[in-house]
Design a protein around this nucleic acid. Structure first.
Length: 304
DNA sequence: CTCCAGGGTTGGA
DNA sequence: TCCAACCATGGA
C-alpha cells in the first residue's frame, strides 16, 4: 500500500478574479454529480500523476486559490501539482486576460450591467472533450434540470467512482471508450431520446477512435472551423459545436447564437415583448467581436 | 391537455 | 444562403 498524504498550496489567480462569482456558477445546480460545493469550497476528483486524487478548492487570503489534494503518492507530488494546476487553470479559465472584454463590455448596453454585477466571473469550462461534447448533446432542446438528471444517470451508470476514505464518493465522467462500446438502446434507457442516444454514441466513437482530439480541434483557426469539424456528426449542429468551442476548446469567438437562454436574457435585459430575432442579436453583438463566448456566459448568468 | 426547453435535420425557394 | 415544417420528450 503506497503512502498517501494531504498536500496543500496556493494557485495564483489573475487580477480581478472573483472566487465568489465563479463559485456561485459552480453551485448553480443542486443536481451536479461531478463535483460537490459546500459553503465556501468545491471538491472533485481530478485524475493526475497516474492517480485519482480528491481536490478541494477554496479562496485564499491573497486573492488566489487554496488547493488541497488528497490521494497522491509523495514521490509524485510535483507531477500532481503541475497537472492539477493546469486542470484548474483550464477549468476556471485563469489564464485569459479579460481586459479587452471588460473594456468593450463597459460600453455595451447589454453587457455593462452584467459585468458590473458579476465582476471577476470567469467562463467556467469543461476541460474534458468528451464530457463537453456529451454535455452539449444532452442539453439540446430540454430544460436544464432534466439535462442534469440525464448527466447524473449517465455518470452513475458508466463513470468511475472514487472514494475519499471518509465515506464521500466522487465520480468521474465516463470515458468516450466506455460509451463507444454501448448500443443506442443502452443510452436511450436512461430516458434520453433515441436521436440523442445515437448522436452521443457517434460522438463517443469519433473521440474513442482518435478522429477528434481536444488538441487538434483547439488548433482550428476559430470556432467556425471547429464547427465544420464537429458538425460532421449527425445530431451536432451549430449550437452544440459552438457550445463545445466555448466551454472546452476555449475559442473566444464561440457564439451559440440560437441559444434560447441567450434569447431570454436579451429579452429581459431590453424589456422586450418578444424574444429577439437572430438578425437583431447579430446587430446587438456586433461590438462583441472576438469575445462572443464571454458575452454569452455573462448574459446567461443574468438569468439566475 | 398545452407549452416550453441552453436544437437538429430536411426539403424547398 | 435562408426559412418553415417536422421531430421528440420530460416537466411545469
Amino acid at each position: 500500500m503506497t503512502e498517501r498524504i494531504s498536500d496543500e498550496w496556493t494557485l495564483n489567480a489573475p487580477p480581478g478574479f472573483s472566487f465568489d462569482h465563479t463559485f456561485a456558477y459552480l453551485a448553480r445546480s443542486t443536481n451536479e454529480c461531478l463535483f460537490l460545493t459546500d459553503s465556501d469550497s468545491v471538491t472533485r476528483c481530478i485524475p493526475a500523476a497516474g492517480a485519482k486524487p480528491i481536490v478541494n478548492i477554496r479562496a485564499s487570503e491573497n486573492g488566489g486559490l487554496r488547493i488541497n489534494v488528497r490521494g497522491v503518492a509523495p514521490s509524485r507530488l510535483d507531477d500532481a501539482r503541475k497537472e492539477i494546476a493546469a486542470y484548474v487553470g483550464d477549468w476556471l479559465d485563469l489564464r485569459t486576460d479579460l481586459s479587452p472584454f471588460l473594456e468593450l463590455a463597459s460600453r455595451d448596453p447589454l453587457l455593462q450591467t452584467a459585468v458590473r454585477r458579476f465582476a471577476g466571473l470567469r467562463l467556467v469550462g469543461v476541460p474534458d472533450l468528451f464530457e463537453a461534447v456529451a454535455w452539449a448533446i444532452l442539453g439540446q432542446q430540454i430544460n436544464l434540470p432534466f439535462a442534469y438528471t440525464l448527466k447524473r444517470r449517465l455518470v452513475e451508470a458508466y463513470g468511475d467512482a472514487v472514494s475519499d476514505g471518509t465515506g464521500a464518493v466522487y465520480r468521474l465522467f465516463p470515458s468516450a471508450e466506455t460509451i463507444a462500446d454501448l448500443r443506442a438502446d443502452d443510452l436511450a434507457s436512461l430516458k434520453m431520446t433515441m436521436r440523442k442516444a445515437e448522436t452521443l454514441l457517434d460522438a463517443a466513437r469519433m473521440i474513442a477512435r482518435g478522429d477528434w482530439t481536444k488538441e487538434r480541434l483547439a488548433a482550428c483557426r476559430d470556432a467556425a472551423e471547429a464547427e465544420r469539424e464537429l458538425a460532421s456528426v449527425r445530431g451536432i449542429g451549430p449550437w452544440t459545436a459552438h457550445y463545445v468551442s466555448m466551454r472546452c476548446l476555449r475559442f473566444r469567438d464561440a457564439f451559440p447564437i440560437g441559444d434560447v437562454g441567450l434569447h431570454l436574457a436579451i429579452q429581459r435585459l431590453l424589456d422586450m415583448e418578444r424574444k429577439p430575432t437572430i438578425p437583431e442579436i447579430r446587430r446587438l453583438a456586433s461590438s462583441w467581436y472576438g469575445w462572443e463566448a464571454y458575452a454569452v456566459f455573462y448574459l446567461w448568468r443574468t438569468l439566475y
